[in-house]
Amino acid sequence: MTTAGIDLGAKFVKVLFLKDDEVLARTQERAGFEPIEAARRAFAAALSECGLTENDLDAICATGAGRQVSPFTKDSVTEVGAAAKGTIYLHPSVRTVIDVGGEEGRAVKCGETGKVEDFAINEQCAAGAGSFTESIARALEVPLEEFGKLSLKSEKSIPMNAQCAVFAESEVVSLVHAKTPKEDISRAVHDAIASRIISMVRRVGINNEVALVGGVAHNPGFVDALERGMETKVIVPEHPEYVGALGAALTARERSR
């Protein structure tokens, strides 16, 4: 059986095709102002990547903030459900899934089948998401990819309060003025965001093992801060940003059985 999962996230649309246990295609497009168009492009790219047509797909399921407007299917699963399902499929022993995207962070406590037992989503005023690192990286004129790595070079903890993103940004400005090395600033920022996320994770409990999914998982500075803060190892799947789409493809498969 071949199924497709489409994750219409706030920043990117991701498409994943799954045949049995083989991933046939992974594609993504920036969502921009026309997320549906972006989804169509990503979907077409996925089809051409594996040489299939839409008719070859047995079922399609959407997830993500825009799942209800997905052009290809009415079937959908929430981001929470998809993240749990996708993660447990890849790493069956995981019980806590942390999903951090551009605009939102989530923590999911799940059972062995990927059933969601409890979840928490970051509340307002939380600087705990990817876009915050982006804006700071921009302010420091460091490419985002470098920004995360930079923090690994620092060995100095500078306490920063990320209760409010705006205030945290002005703290960064003060650090810049105080000629604080960029790597220390980077670490302070990652520690602050990780602290926000960990706060939220504690609401569902840190149940071993812990996985981090979503685009922010590519940031080694954030992963490091998370591991230090929770005092536990964090599993990062190979394509962390596609875990939601994978969860959707798995849901499509389950539902058409």
Binding site: A65, T78, E79, V80, G81, V116, E117, F119, E123, Q124
Partner: peptide
Amino acid sequence: MTFEGNMGDEREFDEKRTMARIDSFMET
């Protein structure tokens, strides 16, 4: 399930995200 809001100040309520949270809760 929890959702954040404000009884009297609508600026502190995110309708779309609250409904999305309800979806997740119903799914669980």
